[in-house]
């Protein structure tokens, strides 16, 4: 049986891992390759690197980080952040990334999803969707630019669309749950997971081990992503996995 996956996420700026809240007061938190290796040893099933560099140099540095990481760890990793062309994707995949993630660029040019899937295969293309509940619609809305811009697009429709375009996986972040540590957004996650035939990684809200259990069962997610709780060592991957195993969830 296919196991559920636990995925830590590292924010990287100019080649260094950074910690901060909502991208403010960023502190250097170490070398991404070292931290990646530690997560690999601690039992992470995959890793996500989010490149939040604003500059061209920062982005070029990321390629170096990817090369070094690919040589050090033996689990798959995804790189996202600022990817806006097939060339960007190619550079990162050639450097050793297993998957690339696109968010804002996919909304601005949906064809990019299809182009990436055609050229590299769907399994390499993860579309990240940031969604927030819109009270007046009674459903979720897609946001871009790091959660700053409301797009007017319905999240469930967008999820179906990206699957049609060829995305191999969706990384779904609930803006309502993100940072709360009150648990993943189960309603949103289940709604998206039921709409699409591709795997869904839930993101936003993880605080305790049972949150992962809930998002894998009630939320129907295939994987759970968390950043803060793992970085600040509030929770370890082993604690999460032991809890899941005890509850009968297939986990590595």
């Amino acid at each position: 049986m296919l196991a559920k996956r636990i995925i830590p996420c590292l924010d990287v700026k100019d080649g260094r891992v950074v910690k901060g809240v909502n991208f403010v007061n960023l502190r250097d938190a170490g070398d991404p390759v070292e931290l990646a290796a530690i997560y690999d040893r601690e039992g992470a099933d995959e890793l996500v690197f989010l490149d939040i560099s604003a500059s061209y140099e920062g982005r070029a540095t990321m390629v170096e980080v990817v090369k070094r990481t690919a040589g050090e760890i033996s689990i798959p990793f995804t790189v996202g952040g600022g990817i806006s062309s097939v060339e960007d994707m190619k550079r990162l995949l050639r450097a050793g990334a297993d998957k690339i993630g696109i968010n804002t660029a996919a909304v601005k040019q949906p064809q990019l999803v299809a182009d990436g899937a055609m050229k590299f295969g769907s399994q390499c293309v993860v579309v990240a969707i940031d969604a927030k509940y819109n009270e007046s619609w009674g459903e979720w809305e897609v946001y871009t630019h790091g959660g700053r811009n409301a797009t007017g697009i319905k999240a469930l429709e967008w999820a179906r669309r990206v699957e049609e375009l060829g995305a191999g996986e969706i990384l779904l972040t609930s803006m309502d749950a993100d940072g709360t540590k009150d648990g993943f957004d189960l309603r949103l996650t289940r709604a998206v997971s039921e709409q699409v035939g591709i795997p869904v990684i839930a993101s936003g809200g993880a605080g305790k081990p049972s949150d992962f259990y809930d998002v894998f069962t009630g939320g129907k997610a295939d994987a759970g992503l968390a950043a803060t709780i793992f970085h600040y060592k509030e929770l370890t991957i082993q604690e999460v996995k032991e809890d899941l195993k005890r509850k009968g969830v297939e986990i590595r």
């Binding site: 296919l2 196991a3 769907s122 399994q123 795997p199």
Partner: peptide, 11 residues
């Protein structure tokens, strides 16, 4: 009626 691709860790 299952997710495709088969993606992840399996025994």
């Amino acid at each position: 009626p299952f997710k495709i691709p088969h993606m992840g860790w399996n025994r």
